[in-house]
Write a protein that binds this DNA or RNA. Structure first.
Lengths: 204, 204
DNA sequence: CAAACTTTTGACCATTTGGTCAACCCAACG
DNA sequence: CGTTGGGTTGACCAAATGGTCAAAAGTTTG
C-alpha cells in the first residue's frame, strides 16, 4: 500500500506537460521579463492552450516562481563544488570555467536571473538573503584563508566573486552585443582570456 | 529673421515636460523593460495625464527610442576619451574608473541598456553595428598597438573591453545582489579591486 | 482685452491580458 | 460496454493597456 498522505505521484502526462510549459516559459521570461511576458506567448511556445496551462499552474506567477526556485540550485552548484581542500588557484580557475560553461549551455537561465535582479529581485530576494548569502560568506572565508596562507595573491574575496560572475555571465546576458562586436567563437576566446585574467590576478 | 525651414524651437514648457517624461520613462523602462512598462506608470511617475504624454510623444515606442538614442552618446563617451597618445596603462585604468563612475551615477541608464541587450537589441541593433562597432574596432586597434609596442601585457583586446564592461556595469545592473551580499560601500571597494585586477592583468 | 496659439484633460475605444468555467474528450478498468 | 477520472478546450469575463478626440483651460501676442 503506497503512501496515502502525500498527493499522488504525477502522471507521465503531468510530467511531460509541466516540463514543456516551464521550458516555454523560460524562453519567454528570459527575453521579456516577468511583466513583459504573456500567458498567450507561453501557451503558444509550449504548444498548449491557455486554459490548459492554467490547469497545470495556478497562474503566471506560479510558473515564474517555479522557474526561479529550480534555477537557484543550478546557479549555486558550481560554487558549492569549490573545494577548500583543493589547490587554491586550480579551484578558482576551474570555478571560472564552470561558470563560463553555464553561460554557454544555459543562457536562458542566466538571462532569467539577470532580469529578476534588474527588477530588484522582487521574487528572489529571500533566496538571495538565505541560501546565496550563506554560501557566499562561507566561500569568501575559504578564499580569505587561502590568501592568508599565502597561496593566493590578496584581493577582496567578495569582489573577486563579483568579477567572476560579471565576466562569465556577460557572455550569456550580453550575447547579442558580443556577437555583433566579435562574431562567433567568442566562448572559446573567453575561456583563454578569463583564465589569463584571473591567473595573473591571483598567482603569488 | 530666423530659420523658417526648421520646426520652430520648443517652448519652455515643451522642454520641461519632455524632460519630465523621459526621466519618468527611464525609471520605468529600466526596471520593467519595454514590454513590461506601461504608459500609465510613466504618466504617474511624470505627474502628467496619459493623453498629455501622448501630446509630447507619438507613442510608447517613440519614448523608448528617444531614450536609447540619448543613451548611446553617454554610453560611448568614456571610451571615446581613451587617448592613443597617452600612457597606455593609465589610459586603460582611468577608462575603468570612468565606467565605474557611470555605473554609480547613472544606474538607470545602465539597466535600460542591459534590458535592451537582454531582449536581443530589437531597437538598438543598428547603433551597435554602426557607431559602437566602429568605435570598438578603432580602440581595439589602439590597444593592440600598445601591446605590440610592449607597453602592455598581451591579451585579446576585445575580451579585455568585454571584461571592463562586465565588471563595471555589474555594480549597476546587479546592484540588488551586490547590496544583499556586501552591503553599502561596494563602489569604493570596487574602485580598488578593479584597479588592482586590470593593473595585474596588463602591467608589463 | 480679444484673437490665436499652445497645452491639458475627461470620456471613450479596440485590443490584449490573466483568469474562469462548464462542457467535452478519451484512455483505463470493472 | 459503460462508467469514471484525468486531461483539454471554446466561450467568456473583468481589468488593463495603448491610443484617440473634441472640448476646455492657459498662455502669448497684436
Amino acid at each position: 500500500m503506497p503512501d496515502d498522505t502525500a498527493p499522488k505521484a504525477p502522471s507521465r502526462i503531468q510530467l511531460r506537460n509541466r516540463r514543456r510549459i516551464l521550458d516555454a516559459a523560460l524562453d519567454v521570461f528570459a527575453v521579456h521579463g516577468y511583466r513583459g511576458a504573456t500567458l498567450d506567448q507561453i501557451a503558444e511556445a509550449a504548444g498548449l492552450s491557455k486554459p490548459n496551462i492554467l490547469y497545470y499552474f495556478a497562474g503566471k506567477e506560479e510558473i515564474h516562481v517555479t522557474l526561479l526556485s529550480q534555477l537557484m540550485e543550478t546557479w549555486l552548484d558550481p560554487l558549492v563544488e569549490m573545494d577548500a581542500t583543493g589547490d587554491p588557484l586550480d579551484e578558482i580557475l576551474s570555478y571560472v570555467q564552470r561558470k563560463l560553461d553555464m553561460a554557454r549551455d544555459l543562457p536562458r537561465e542566466s538571462r532569467l536571473f539577470a532580469n529578476e535582479i534588474l527588477q530588484g529581485a522582487p521574487r528572489m530576494r529571500p533566496h538571495l538573503e538565505g541560501e546565496l548569502k550563506s554560501l557566499f560568506d562561507e566561500k569568501c572565508g575559504v578564499i580569505q584563508d587561502w590568501m592568508n596562507a599565502g597561496k593566493l595573491a590578496k584581493v577582496d574575496p567578495r569582489h573577486l566573486l563579483f568579477s567572476i560572475w560579471a565576466t562569465t555571465q556577460h557572455y550569456a546576458d550580453f550575447e547579442t552585443q558580443v556577437q555583433v562586436l566579435s562574431g562567433a567563437g567568442a566562448f572559446d576566446e573567453a575561456r583563454l582570456h578569463l583564465d589569463t585574467m584571473f591567473r595573473r590576478l591571483l598567482a603569488v
